[in-house]
Every structure is written in C-alpha cells, then in structure tokens.
Design a protein around this nucleic acid. Structure first.
Lengths: 168, 168
DNA sequence: AGAGGTTACGTGGACGTCCAAGTAAATCAG
DNA sequence: CTGATTTACTTGGACGTCCACGTAACCTCT
C-alpha cells in the first residue's frame, strides 16, 4: 500500500517536460502548484495519523480547537466556516460527527433564529487539549524543515493567501 | 457561498494563541502546516475552476498529462500511482471516470496478467493539450507569487518532500 | 406593514482520497 | 514442482470538500 520511494523527484521531472515543450514561463508555477498539493498531502497524512487513535481527523481537530479558543466556547457555524476558510457545508459535516461523539453541542442562537451556535463540551475541551499536545510533539515541533526555512515557508504562503483574498 | 474577506490573518492569530498557551516551539510548525493546507485549497480551487469547463478535475488532468508524456502513451496503473504519489485506489477511481469520458482505455498488460495498462486515446491527448494551454495561461504563468518567491517555495517544498521520503 | 433581497443551515450528490478486504497472477523457497 | 509470499487491481466504505437546491429567518426600503 505504501508508495515506493522514487529515484528522482517527479515534480522536477515534470518541470523538465514543461520546458522541453516550450512552456518555460509556466514551469515554475506548475512546479509550485504541484509541490503544494503533495506537501499538503504529506502533512495531512501525518496529522491524521497522530489524531486517528484519538478518534479525530485534522478537519475536526481544527474546529474543536477553534472553539476552545473562543471566549464562551461557542461560535455560529457560519463564523467557524469563515475563520477556517472552508465551505459552510464542511462545517455542517464536521459538527454532525463531533456532536455524535459528544464533543460539541448545537444550540439555538439567542439573537438570530437562523443561526446555530456550536458549543464545545467538557469532553471536547479535554480531547482538544490532548490532541494538541500530541500534534505539537509529533508534528508541529518537528515539521521536517529547519527553522529559517520554516519561517520562509510561512512568509511566502502568507503572501500567497493574502494575494488570494483570504484576508485584507 | 464565497467566504467573506477577514480583516486579519487567521493563521497568524492561531500562532498567537499557540504562543499565549506556552507552545512557542510548536507555533511556527503549526502555522506552516495550516498554511500548506490553505494554500493547497486555494490552488486546487483555481485549477479546478479552469478545468471544469473542459470536464476535467485536477487529479484527472494530472493523470492524463502524465500518460501523454510517456513513450507509448500508456502506463500500468501501479506505476501511475507511484509517479503521482497517490494511493492505487485513487488511480482506479480516476481511470474509471476518464474511461467513461473516452479519454483513456484499459488494456491487459502483455507480460503481466495482473497489471492493467492505461492507454491515452487521441481524444485524451487533445484534451490534455488544451487543458495544459489553459492552465498555463490562467494559473501556472501567474501563480500569485513573484519569481524569486516562487523558486524559494519550490525549493523549500522539495526539501520537505525529500525529507518525507518521496524520492531519494 | 409588506415585498424583495440577503443570510444561515440542511440535504443530496459528485469527487478525490485513503483504508480494509478480497481475488488473481507472479515470484520465491524448499 | 509445490506451497507461501508478494504484487496488482477491484470493490465497498468512511471522510472532507464543494456545488446546487431548498427552507427559514432577518433586513431594507418603500
């Protein structure tokens, strides 16, 4: 099941093909986009591997942790979607699973009949804390890059996200 | 449907929370992993937007283009999975949809009764070429980063992929 | 106060990804 | 040569993501 190790960088090979076809001005962009896809898959797999024994996925972990950081441990679903930058239906899906596991509760919004407040439970708080501890130790403290490269990566991706309109 | 623009960087805010909780040594790694997730989502959405009118997704585009670069326009499914660094069942899924669209054909491997050769059709070649032209113009030639930053990104992610064991 | 537009959610569906399990063919060991 | 192991693929299922559509509540403007 595990993909065997290649003897060459497949993305560098793709960039070579791009240049050989006369697409020099697109080769670096193609390599950047493809590299982002693969790097994300690597990190997501590592995070999910850490979280699986806890019964969490990275997506649900993010939502749970976001809730734990709020003043009252609750957010309207639309607000959670905006902060996590995902489609509202992804929040619906995550909340349904978190609720089934007893980690969050849905409550009507006191001031807005349309909105639903997602409220983290005590059990949810405990699990979020444990999950963060494990993720910090296994992934975030050793992401496979030296500190200067790490800062460069975060900085470049911040520019990219800003340019894409994620934030002002 | 479109997520509203935030007035602040949600990932920088998350990093601030990390530091406030005493997880300084994990804050940058958290920011890097989360940034990768979001940057990939941005690029995937852009690519899929370009490809949707052509009836393709980025995953199927990648497979189709890979086939078009091979000597005989064909690859065993396992080889395609190794080169694209995805699970074999993802290839099965992509091939099924590409085959239904008449863009590839399955053929028995002449030397190995277990293997299936995926062969790109003439129609598949034409669509791959058209799709590359559009992706180059709309995305790969203007990925939203200046050239030096682009090269830096590709370089850092190459280190990350190598460290993760993607290639020797 | 009422009509029209906007916002917040839910449902159903498509897609890509992975895992688990099963089948068939190739390869290896004795 | 035979049995065990490995490899290649398929199927079924879970999950996260998005889109299209529908419903209900809020808001604005007249």
């Amino acid at each position: 099941m595990t993909t065997p190790v290649l003897r060459f960088d497949p993305i560098a090979e793709a960039a070579r093909q791009w240049r050989a076809h006369g697409w020099q001005d697109a080769a670096d962009g193609m390599a950047a986009v493809t590299s982002l896809m693969r790097a994300q898959a690597i990190m997501l797999a590592r995070a999910d591997e850490v979280l699986r024994p806890l019964g969490l996925s990275f997506a649900r972990y993010e939502l749970l942790t976001l809730l734990s950081f709020t003043r009252h441990g609750a957010l309207p679903m639309a607000r959670a979607g905006a902060l996590l930058q995902v489609h509202p239906t992804s929040i619906t899906s995550a909340v349904r699973r978190l609720e089934r596991a007893g980690l969050v509760r849905r409550e009507p919004h006191p001031d807005d009949g349309r909105a639903v407040l997602v409220h983290i439970t005590g059990e949810g708080r405990e699990l979020a804390e444990a999950a963060t501890k494990e993720l910090n130790a296994a992934l975030f403290c050793r992401p496979g890059l030296a500190p200067p490269q790490l800062e460069t990566l975060v900085s470049v991706l911040r520019d990219l996200r800003r340019d894409a309109g994620d934030f002002a």
